[in-house]
Nucleic acid binder design. Structure first.
Length: 352
DNA sequence: TAGTCGTGGAC
DNA sequence: TGTCCAAGACT
């Protein structure tokens, strides 16, 4: 048993028996891994795409978008040659649009500067735009077999519970988790047979996503419950409170065309993307909305009201140069915000 | 390092 | 209903 370092008050490192842990985890993973389109492939570009799409985005949401994206841009070269607007249009509704811009730029960098060959190590991959610690480790281990640990929200939660540590958003807390995660990753395969690091990392995330869930973890089904200090509990920091806001938009139509507004290129939120023209709440106070939908963005829950044209056309504050009459058939090719897409689908202007 | 960046689904 | 938050990165 390790002791606290005398006089420092620093808790001893908590050891997890790595060999037993790996064996139990991998055995469970072989039996229970979900079948997902980015598993069992040999295409680093596709792995890169899947990891970027999966950032803060649910597996169920990504599956179909991943297939569509690869159908449209099957290779790094195809993506690099694309217009940014077309990439954003394909990303519309997925959120965090900066991911799409950076992936696009990353593809152009690899094709233009690296002869189309992706870097193979996590350290080198981190130089690519939009590729941070997690994504670099994920690509390096899954696509290239490097023995490097991924630390995402799943892995962090699994390890905190396993070791009985509180969740703390500090550099030291982060470093402790990374160290623990790395101590568990198996060595790279000797002769290129199988991929122990990649499988182990995916198994850690799979465990967090399906068994060691944030709420009501399924400890009775957990392969490593016998090594777990807490059996599913850990102290979490207080969350920020949610806010509510009302917003209004105009739905103006001319035959088969609909009026859209381009957001400022300098906007911090969804720059350059297209949405319905916003209206001030004062301007619409006397009118009844055509449609109400709920929409939440990070910390804020929006009560969205959409108004038919009526007398409100002149209430649009935007400059005429930012307003675009758009044929309904072209909407799918444009970088619409998720909310605009949702409203246009709801009123039947867009299909799907 | 603490904010910011989207969206939809589960409960 | 509101709350929570998902395979993070960037500044």
């Amino acid at each position: 048993m390790k002791q606290a370092v005398a006089g420092t008050g620093i808790a001893p490192e908590i050891e997890v028996p790595a060999i037993e842990f790996r064996r139990l985890l991998l055995g469970w993973y072989r039996e229970h891994a979900r079948v997902l389109p980015w598993r069992g492939i040999d295409d680093p570009y596709a792995t890169w795409l899947s990891e970027v799409m999966l950032q803060q985005t649910r597996v169920a949401t990504v599956i179909e978008r991943y297939r569509e994206f690869l159908t449209r841009f099957p290779t790094l070269q195809a993506l690099a040659a694309a217009e940014e607007n077309d990439v954003l249009a394909l990303w519309s509704g997925l959120g965090y649009y900066r991911r799409a811009r950076m992936l696009h730029r990353g593809a152009q960098f690899v094709v233009g500067e690296l002869h189309g060959e992706m870097p193979r190590s996590a350290a080198e991959l981190k130089a690519l735009p939009g590729v941070g610690d997690y994504t670099a480790a994920a690509i390096a281990s899954i696509a290239f077999g490097e023995s490097v640990a991924v630390v995402d929200g799943n892995v962090e939660r699994v390890l905190l519970r396993l070791m009985g540590l509180p969740e703390e958003r500090t550099g030291a807390g982060r470093a402790r988790i990374t160290k623990a995660a790395q101590s568990l990753v198996p060595a790279a395969a000797k002769r290129g047979v199988g991929n122990p690091p990649g499988d182990h990392n995916q198994a850690m995330m799979e465990l967090g996503a399906t068994i060691c869930t944030p709420k009501s973890p399924l400890c009775l089904q957990c392969p490593v419950v016998g090594l777990c200090r807490t059996r599913g509990e850990h102290v979490t920091p207080v969350r920020q409170k949610q806010r509510s806001r009302s917003v209004a938009y105009l739905l103006a139509r001319r035959g088969e065309r609909v009026l859209l507004e381009r957001r400022s290129a300098e906007a911090s939120l969804m720059p350059g993307m297209l949405e319905l023209p916003p209206l001030s709440m004062d301007a619409v106070a006397a009118y009844e909305p055509l449609l109400r939908v709920k929409h939440s963005i990070t910390n804020t829950n929006y009560d969205v009201q959409v108004f038919a044209e009526g007398k409100l056309r002149d209430a649009v504050p935007a400059a005429a140069s930012d307003l675009i009459w758009t044929p309904a058939a072209k909407l799918r090719d444009l970088p619409l915000t998720g909310l605009a897409r949702k409203v246009l689908q709801r009123v039947g202007v867009m299909s799907r």
